[in-house]
Amino acid sequence: MQGDTARLAVTGELDIATVPRLEEAVATVLAQGTRSLIVDLSRLAFVDSSGLRMFITLNDRASAEGWSLGLIRPPDPSYSVFQITGAEENLPFIEDPSP
């Protein structure tokens, strides 16, 4: 965590069983007054609809509360979920600022 920018990295699978853990981590980070959150999905192996739903909720919340959210693109197999659902154009995918 640098200044008011926080970065969370997700490794492995994001589904109904693991979404609560990410939600918890996000809540902890936001409670510290973060104004900019980057979620690194570059090591995401799998994501299902509940994971997708979580990112939609998070993005809506960022817009409403006025902080910024950036998602670092996951590798192809898990990125396809974002492509199939049109989330690709609607969620704030970014280039990794610190590769």
Binding site: L52, R53, I56, Q83, I84, T85, G86, A87, E89, N90
Partner: peptide, 13 residues
Amino acid sequence: RHGTLLGAFSSVD
């Protein structure tokens, strides 16, 4: 062809 998830996004196609 892929289209947008329903109920989720403002930009749809």
